[in-house]
Design a protein around this nucleic acid. Structure first.
Length: 635
RNA sequence: GCCGACGUAGCUCAAUGGAAGAGCAGCUGAUUUGUAAUCAGCAGGCUGGGGGUUCGAGUCCCUUCGUCGGCUCCA
């Protein structure tokens, strides 16, 4: 009997019955030592598996998603093995490969501290040196249960008990270590060449806060030292762009013990904010939005009516006025609804798009606060669109277009998610299904790629979320479009239709920036603090060379101010190099150096922060160019 | 909220349980400077707060607040 398989070059090959992937792997690695994993019909597969008839076989190295995953998954087993050797009483959780690395969760008898990671790394190096072969073992449920019972692994037993009936239970074994695992893995522990344990953190068993908290060890692994160091350096570089660091250095904002989670914007940050909101207003007026302002504090009865009292109370702040309960608004919707409800509407008035830069307060858990990215008070660029049910699809589509226009101005890449009905939800299943399918349809009709986020919707409706990334690649939700058939019911909103009867409108809640604070943070990191000219707190610094040219410099400065640029005059008693350095450090886009030569010719020497000296230019020419750059919002 | 770590001058960081320091920033003066740091001097502190151990605490212990990395949650 012969086995026929297709190789990656498209050629067919024939092997004797019983040939394993390992046999082919040996053959291949003779020519390419980098190969890590075998794919059978695109799926990672154990090396000891026999070649299936008519399958497509491919080998991948670390630069493929699958190769890296297998490599790092093996690193996580080496971690668990080392921990087991050092702390025999430890109980194993799970240990998958993740983006850029891997982790393993443990329950230690006595909690370890980050100092212990060095010892664990040493032990891991030993295991790597031992080049222990890694073997797959398949067993029955009973065998597996007995094995992990003997080894005192309650978490593994829990996992086994939840495996579907009839599933093949596989374990991977290296030396005296064995782990429940679907695999596959590298052939032996010596294959892991460079790794580092990068962190220690708490993590609830199976991600549920009702479960015990385990200790999670994070690490990363690469095929060689250079690539590992390259990655670690990249992280180091990313930290220099951290908005908390730049926010302080560039005097954009500050945070204080006296107000945890409530950021203070300084003048520079406020200027960026202003530019963002100016642009936002301009776009929204054009897109047919009105703008309102509603109070921060509203009576309890309103929150009871809206459902927030039942569904959001633990995140809200309360106060008492004249012996009545009030709440600080955690969302802007009830305010917008009161505005909408203050007059009668004809179907001809709809859609009505009501926007508000609304400040909301939410009591977030203290451990989740994070610079401007996760705060307890933030400004949402909110809008509520009240419309006929027949207008929903079109309106959702227009919001998506608007969203894309904004994000491309900043040069952001974004990821889309669709979130469905959560456990704690208002309304009937029917309403949810209807709302969810509308959102699906709009996304599909625009061929937008999205991830389904089961059970992650708002309590009143499903939503489409837009995620942006920070400098370390962590993703943050910014824009969101939430479809709501609940609030109109709760508040008995109506419009008069063509038929003269009252009908129920639908509502979209949507934000584009999401929160101004979060957006500001992401912009700081995205640009590394070097804002495009239109947003830059100071756009031009005029730098006289000596005090002979102070008068001329002042004239230049006045003219730029007259042209309404944000301009600074650096007439301090310092050398030119010093002033340039300082302007560079402050990331000011343009420096105009004026000395005797420039005064004589009536010009300015232009220097751009990212291009250096651009030579002399007539001031009116510079002013025109700058105006264009600002109007076009060039990045 | 939970797990772990960390809080020293505005910032970045030193200081065996034994006299709280440096660089940058700030201020004063000198220097008149040509594309990323001129020189000198001065000032700057209840070592996050509270309690304890000790002859003696920045250092050890407890507690509280804050911050950082995660988990959970979310814009």
């Amino acid at each position: 009997m012969q086995i026929k398989v297709k190789l990656e070059n498209g050629k067919e090959a024939v092997y004797p019955q019983g040939t394993t992937c390992m046999d082919l792997y040996r053959e291949k690695t003779a020519g390419n030592k980098e190969l890590l994993a075998v794919l059978i019909d695109g799926e990672e597969c154990d090396l000891n598996a026999p070649l299936p008839e008519n399958s497509e076989i491919a080998f991948v190295d670390f630069d493929s998603l699958q190769g890296a995953r297998v490599y790092r998954h093996t690193a996580s087993h080496i971690l668990a093995h080392a921990v087991k050797r050092l702390y025999p009483g430890v109980k194993l959780g799970i240990g998958p490969a993740i983006e850029n690395g891997f982790y393993y969760d443990f329950e230690f008898e006595d909690p370890i501290s980050s100092d212990d990671l060095k010892t664990i790394e040493k032990e891991m190096k030993k295991i790597i040196k031992e080049k222990l072969p890694i073997r797959r073992r398949e067993m029955s449920r009973e065998e597996a249960e007995q094995l992990f019972r003997e080894r005192g692994e309650p978490y593994k037993l829990e996992l086994i008990s939840e495996l579907p009936e009839g599933e093949i239970i596989s374990c991977y074994e290296q030396g005296d270590f064995i782990d429940l695992c679907t695999g596959p893995h590298l052939p032996h522990t010596g294959k892991v060449k460079a790794f580092k344990l990068t962190g220690l953190a708490g993590a609830y068993w199976r991600g549920d806060e009702r479960n015990p908290m385990l200790q999670r060890i994070y690490g990363t692994a690469f095929p060689d030292k250079d690539r590992l160091n390259e990655y670690l350096n990249m992280l180091e570089e990313a930290r220099k762009r951290d908005h908390r660091k730049l926010g302080r250095e560039l005097e954009l904002f500050s945070l204080h013990e006296e107000a945890p989670g409530f950021p203070f914007l300084h003048n520079n940050g406020a200027i960026v904010w202003q530019e963002l909101t100016d642009y936002w207003r301009q776009e929204h007026r054009q897109a047919g939005y009105e703008e309102i302002k509603t109070p921060l504090i509203l009576n309890r009865s309103l929150w009871e009516q809206s459902g927030h009292w039942d569904h959001f109370r633990e995140n809200m702040y309360f106060t008492r006025i004249d012996e009545q309960d009030y709440a600080v608004k955690p969302m802007n919707c009830p305010g917008a609804i009161l505005v909408f409800r203050s007059k009668m509407h004809s179907y001809r008035d709809l859609p009505r798009r009501i926007a508000e830069m609304g400040i909301v307060h939410r009591h977030e858990l203290s451990g989740t606060l994070h610079g401007l990215l996760r705060v307890r008070s933030f400004t949402q660029d909110d809008a509520h669109i009240f419309m006929l049910p027949s207008q929903v699809e079109n309106e959702v589509g227009e919001v998506i277009d608007l969203m894309d226009r904004f994000y491309s101005v900043f040069g952001f890449n974004y990821r889309v998610e669709l979130s469905t009905k959560p456990e704690k939800a208002m309304g009937t299943q029917e309403m949810w299904d209807k709302a969810t399918s509308i959102l699906e349809r709009v996304l599909d009709s625009r061929s937008i790629d999205y991830k389904l986020n089961e059970g992650d919707g708002a309590f009143y409706g499903p939503k489409i979320d837009f995620h942006l990334e920070d400098c370390l690649g962590r993703s943050w939700q910014c824009g969101t479009i939430q479809l709501d058939f609940q609030m109109p019911e709760k508040f008995d909103l109506t419009y008069v239709g063509e038929d003269g009867d009252r009908h129920r409108p639908a509502v979209i809640h949507r934000v584009i920036y999401g929160s101004m604070e979060r957006l500001l943070a992401l912009l700081i990191e995205h640009y590394g603090g070097a804002f495009p000219v239109w947003m830059a707190p100071v756009q031009v610094s005029v730098i006289p060379v000596t005090d002979r040219t102070h008068d001329y410099a002042r004239k230049v400065y006045e003219q730029l101010k007259e042209a309404s640029f944000r301009v600074a005059l650096d007439d301090r008693n310092e050398k030119v190099g010093y002033k340039i350095r300082e302007a560079q450090v402050k990331k000011i886009p343009y420096m105009l150096i004026v000395g005797d030569k420039e005064e004589e010719s009536g010009q300015v020497a232009v220097r751009r922060r990212d291009q250096g000296d651009l030579g002399a230019e007539n001031l009116p020419v510079f002013i025109e160019k700058l105006k264009t750059e600002i109007n076009e919002k060039s990045i």
